[in-house]
């Protein structure tokens, strides 16, 4: 069975899907990514689907699951590079991919992840600075 490689670049895991995936390959990718997030402690995942000429409900659901699992493991997912015809078809199919962040290309995806991380860390600092709740 073929496997989709997961590359680590700084604090980000990059996946570029270049093959017409069998369902099992998509499920394997889901597992590989979850493992890699935990092993590397990366906080961002970018999935490049610019080479995919279709996204059906199975692949759509797999992308949604990957995003949810990543979130639970403290990583944000951005799907990048969706072709216009794929976007039109997905919406008509009835899949609007709620909960999935998208960007037009890898570069914009990396920017989005960096901004989110920055915001997240600022929020954490704010919480630390809040005065302790006094009890009477």
């Amino acid at each position: 069975m073929e496997r989709v490689p997961v590359l680590k670049i700084g604090d980000i895991l990059l996946v570029s899907i270049q093959i017409d995936m069998e369902d099992q390959v998509a499920l394997q990718l889901q597992e590989d990514l979850a493992d890699k997030i935990v092993v590397t402690g990366c906080h961002g995942v970018i999935i490049d689907i610019s080479a995919l000429d279709i996204v059906d409900s199975f692949v759509g659901r797999t992308l949604a699951t990957i995003a949810s699992v990543s979130k639970v493991l403290d990583a944000d997912t951005v799907v990048v590079g969706m072709r216009p015809a794929v976007a039109i078809t997905l919406v008509e199919l009835g899949l609007s991919l709620p909960g999935i962040r998208t960007a037009l290309n890898v570069e914009l995806g990396m920017k989005l992840l960096a901004q989110e991380r920055e915001q997240y860390e600022l929020d954490l600092e704010d919480e630390d600075e809040e005065p302790a709740v006094s009890t009477r």
Binding site: D53, I54, D56, A85, I88, T89, L93
Partner: peptide, 13 residues
Amino acid sequence: LVDQTKIVTAASE
């Protein structure tokens, strides 16, 4: 191109 994408997606489902 859009119709190709639609029929291939339908076939996949």
